[in-house]
């Protein structure tokens, strides 16, 4: 018998009680209310040691982001295509005059790897935010590769305020079948960190030393 059938056979032979599952309530969710979603998301993300910029999408797109990059002394930035599309042409224009050199993620494996490991900052997109956790949910793929939110010392993640969800349950529903799962979804709630030496915490163990979330707000009418 192969290992698979041996293991499954053994498990299936075991006596099983027909458990009556207790229908328990949620216990994790707070009273839902969409009003405070963005505020709580930002508050908690900051508690998780991330930097957050809240910008009006229709306003001066990206000027705060550029300012933040400059103040971090960032000269070279690599964008995922998804981030580039989300930030839009106005941002690209603004960047050209700012002195920050921005490039798109190369579309070949070695090139992407090199660019990601060499860049000072990588800009990616989060498809959702999780308000209760202050966490960003990134869907990785061709347009939004994994390495750009991982290898550069500064990870910038752009998110639409309208896509901030209440909690993990809402995210599970957003992800759930019948939609096929993407190859990788990553939940990011802070910079890379470790406290493995004497319990003293520090940021940037392997991944980004800093996390900067850029929340694009559509204006109050569209957010609700």
């Amino acid at each position: 018998m192969n290992a698979r059938d041996a293991i499954l056979g053994r498990l299936k032979k075991a006596p099983r009680e027909s458990r009556q599952p207790e229908r328990l309530g949620d216990f994790q969710a707070r009273a839902p209310g969409k009003d405070g979603l963005t505020e709580r998301f930002i508050e908690r993300l900051k508690q998780n040691s991330a930097m957050v910029i809240l910008e009006k999408e229709s306003g001066d797109v990206g000027s705060a982001l550029l300012k933040a990059l400059q103040s971090e002394g960032i000269e070279r930035v690599v964008f995922t295509r998804a981030a580039d599309a989300l930030l839009g042409p106005a941002f690209q224009e603004a960047m050209q005059t700012s002195g920050v050199v921005g490039t798109l993620a190369p579309e070949d494996e070695e090139g992407l790897k090199r660019a990601a490991f060499q860049a000072y900052a990588g800009v990616s997109v989060a498809k959702w935010g999780v308000s209760e956790l202050g966490a960003l949910a990134l869907v990785h793929g061709k347009e939004n590769p994994r390495l750009l939110s991982l290898a550069p010392p500064l990870s910038v993640i752009v998110l639409k305020a309208g896509s901030i969800l209440e909690d993990l349950r809402a995210l599970a529903i957003a992800l759930a079948p019948p939609l096929a799962m993407p190859s990788q979804v990553t939940l990011v709630s802070g910079p890379s960190q470790s406290a493995d030496i004497q319990g003293v915490p520090f940021f940037g163990m392997h991944g980004p030393k800093k996390l900067l979330a850029v929340v694009l707000q559509d204006g109050p009418s569209k957010e609700g």
Partner: peptide, 24 residues
Amino acid sequence: CTGQRMSAYVTIDSGPRRFGEFDG
């Protein structure tokens, strides 16, 4: 575990990289 609200990263993998992806 660590007393964090959530760990810095949680990855959910559903298969290897898909056609057209450059990492994974």
